[in-house]
């Protein structure tokens, strides 16, 4: 199943093949979350938006005109869904990325460091434009190449590089103000 192309998986998922759809989810759950997070900025809402986007994508799978470009189509759904979520009056406030970790997680001291850095990062990311957040998360967190991002977001590769450059520069400035940033993590 891992060797199948997106187009093959989409075709089989259209006929209700759960294994094929599951593989698509596995491939794009992290990028979908990153895009949602870049738009919304809150973990819980980003998670909801990403999960709901997969449901919407399955319901509208017949509308995906070019199954080979499923990723770009899916991320567009995630982006729209996330923006709609922001517009909703009922959008929850203040539930930043929860600091709670599992019992097997880091020590309380380390957890506090991580929590502080996470807060700082979230703040730094919020200073970027939506497209810059999206690109920096897809590139630096998900490991997508410039060309992949360009194709899936429908923009020139040079624009992607430019956004990435300015996003990283802004993040560096923001994070360098925090003297212990990254230390010991």
């Amino acid at each position: 199943m891992k060797d199948h192309s997106d187009a093959e998986l989409v075709s089989q998922a259209r006929a209700g093949d759960g294994e094929s759809f599951g593989e698509l989810v596995l491939r794009y759950q992290r990028p979908a979350y990153s895009v949602a997070l870049s738009v919304i900025g809150r973990h819980q809402d980003a998670e909801d938006a990403a999960q709901e986007s997969f449901m919407v994508a399955l319901e509208r799978l017949d509308e995906c005109r070019n199954p080979a470009r499923f990723a770009g189509w899916l991320l567009a759904i995630v982006r729209n869904r996330s923006r709609n979520l922001i517009r909703r009056e009922s959008l929850r406030r203040g539930d930043e990325i929860p600091a709670s970790a599992s019992s097997s997680g880091p020590s309380p001291e380390r957890a506090a460091d991580i929590s502080a850095l996470r807060g700082r990062l979230t703040e730094a990311l919020s200073t970027l434009s939506e497209v810059q957040r999206e690109i920096v998360l897809l590139h630096d967190l998900e490991g997508w190449k410039h060309a992949e991002i360009a194709e899936r977001l429908g923009m020139p590769s040079g624009t992607v590089r430019s956004h990435l450059h300015f996003a990283r520069k802004a993040l560096r400035v923001q994070l360098s103000e925090w003297k212990d940033y990254g230390k010991g993590l």
Binding site: Y33, H43, A50, G105, T122, L175, Y181
Partner: peptide, 24 residues
């Protein structure tokens, strides 16, 4: 590189083991 390494923290799977399996 430091920015990239730091960004791992916003990945829920970093602090919540099994997060992506549950998501899936």
């Amino acid at each position: 590189r430091e920015v990239r390494a730091s960004l791992e923290i916003v990945d829920p799977g970093y602090r919540l083991p099994g997060y992506w399996e549950r998501f899936h």
